[in-house]
Amino acid sequence: MPAARIIPCLDVRDGRVVKGVQFRDHRDVGDIIDHALRYRDEGADELVFYDISASAEDRSLDTEWIRRIGREIDIPFAVAGGIRSRDQAAACLEAGADKVSVNSPALERPGLIEELARDFGSQCVVLGVDSFEKEGDYYVHQYTGRVDRSRDTGLKTLDWVKEATERGAGEIVLNCMRRDGVRSGYDLAHVGAVVGAVEVPVIASGGAGAPEHFRDAFTQAGASGALAATVFHDRLIAIPELKEYLARCGIEIRR
């Protein structure tokens, strides 16, 4: 089996790294290349760069910073935010991204997933899902990058991940929105339900606050990777110590 992946997520706005709580109130936390290099050196297994404004503002992300990252780091990275067409995805991949992650545009037009999988292969196509708990079930939200446009699609999360993987998505990043930025742990039951519903790797996102939360995402929920932002950006958890801890727990880790 591959090593369990530790994945820092960098929310990007205008080429800077930002971070908000529950997808709101973003503050600037620094330069994109500085962050990418620091995480690479600390042993991050992969990085995700998410342009938080591109999707909601109906524009595709800027490929210049993708090119800068591609030159600087030698670990895989995915980019997300406003990728609406095959050509926009091609531009990101050509700039050096290893994967593109689609979220709101795939909800607008699910056929986008098939087009990307056909031309670039499923392994390049990540589906980002913003999942929100309501009355004991989970529903997909759209346009979460902007407060005034964020909406409940009425689509159940498990139905959407099954449909999207049948269309060719090769990985799921599951953002449990109620957990985002609050550091109370991943939503293990929900991550586990998605892992059981699809054949592709699932990355847990939203809620990491302590090393045990990462352990549980792997051992209890069966996630292939665990994504986090706040705890890494604010240096509450150092990746080398986290990896040492996970290895001591018997989890296969790349070091």
Binding site: P2, A3, Q123, S224
Partner: peptide, 15 residues
């Protein structure tokens, strides 16, 4: 072949 606990694509760092 995808089986529970072994997703496909094979994605990540392997030894």
């Amino acid at each position: 072949e995808a089986v529970p606990g072994r997703p496909v694509p094979h994605m990540g760092w392997s030894r």
